[in-house]
Computed example of a mutant assay.
Amino acid sequence: MKVATAQLPALADEDRVLVTDHGVIVLDGATAHDPAMPAAHEYVDTLGAELRSRIDRPGDLRGILAEAIAATADHLQLHSGIAPSSTVALLRVCDNITEILTLGDSPVIVGRADNGFDIVTDTRLDDLHLPESTQYRNRLASGSGYDETHRGLLRVLQRKQRERRNHADGYWIAETDPDSAYHAVTARYPVESVPWVVLATDGAASPLAPMETSWPDIAKMDAAGLRQLLERGRHWEANHDPDGQIQPRSKRHDDMTIAVALP
């Protein structure tokens, strides 16, 4: 498997990408808008290491993720509800099968032999439709910018999201509960039917739409091309939409991480 990656950190620098013989791991640690919540740096470092040590071995990806979450929570002595969290996007190519897992809003785009593609994604956080989420997006679209009211809305939103974290009527994410892994979105394909796979954090995927860059085109890029792509995305945010009016988003700039794998 040939893999090319690129990253462009923002202030948080809580994305991680790891590559093994048979797998690719992409993590996006949750930014702590609420000062009561810890930053996710140590969490994604530890979870990434635990996944890297397990992903190439046989076994269900959900079970491997569950073990990694449990080991991370134990190592860092974390407690549910006041712990950092992270999205997880996994690719494993083994025994002529391409396996995909995503938990949280980091999409995995799977190329098909007919030149189309599937997007494997988890929309359950957005599907909560919390009023603060709609409110901050509407304010940005109206030109309010990233002011103190915006930051206050994000703090309230994050507290409400935390109340619904890893619950049947909420959404699922990597935190302290290993059972969350069994709620991940998964997909399996014969290796010969998958010419390419792209894994991205939402910070990398979001600016691509206004730039009209297609996933099949991205799949042809090497590491240098991917880096240039992310720099174009950052330039678009900074110069064409600095206040989030065109594309309302919680932060002016997010960490950007992308990986292209050719199984």
Score class of each variant (00 low, 15 high):
A6T: 08
P9E: 00
L11R: 12
D13Q: 09
D15G: 08
R16D: 06
V17F: 07
L18F: 14
V19I: 10
T20M: 00
T20W: 02
D21Q: 09
H22D: 00
G23N: 00
L27F: 12
D28A: 06
G29V: 06
A30S: 12
P35G: 12
P38R: 07
A40E: 04
H41G: 15
Y43I: 04
V44L: 03
T46M: 06
G48F: 05
L51F: 12
R52S: 15
R52F: 13
I55N: 01
R57I: 13
G63N: 11
I64G: 07
L65K: 09
A70G: 10
T72P: 12
A73S: 12
D74L: 08
D74I: 07
L76W: 13
S80T: 10
G81I: 12
P84G: 05
P84C: 03
P84V: 05
V88R: 01
L90E: 02
L91M: 03
L91F: 09
L91P: 06
R92H: 05
I97V: 11
L101D: 05
L103V: 09
G104I: 02
D105Q: 06
S106M: 03
V108C: 02
I109L: 00
R112I: 04
R112L: 03
R112H: 10
A113F: 10
N115T: 07
I119H: 13
I119W: 10
D122K: 08
L130R: 11
L130K: 10
T134A: 11
T134D: 15
R137M: 04
R139P: 13
S144R: 14
G145L: 01
E148S: 12
E148Q: 12
G152H: 14
G152V: 04
L154Y: 13
Q161A: 08
Q161T: 12
Q161D: 05
R162A: 08
R165I: 07
N166S: 02
W172S: 01
I173Q: 02
E175T: 15
T176L: 01
D179F: 14
A181P: 15
H183K: 07
V185D: 00
V185K: 08
A187N: 08
Y189S: 00
V191D: 04
E192S: 09
W196T: 00
L208Q: 11
A209N: 13
P210M: 01
M211F: 13
T213V: 14
P216H: 05
D217N: 08
I218N: 00
A223W: 09
G225P: 14
G225H: 10
R227V: 05
R227A: 07
R227D: 10
Q228W: 14
L229E: 08
W236D: 04
W236S: 07
H240R: 14
D241Q: 06
D243S: 11
D243A: 09
G244K: 04
Q247D: 13
P248G: 03
T257L: 00
I258Q: 02
A259D: 02
A259E: 01
V260K: 01
V260D: 00
A261I: 02
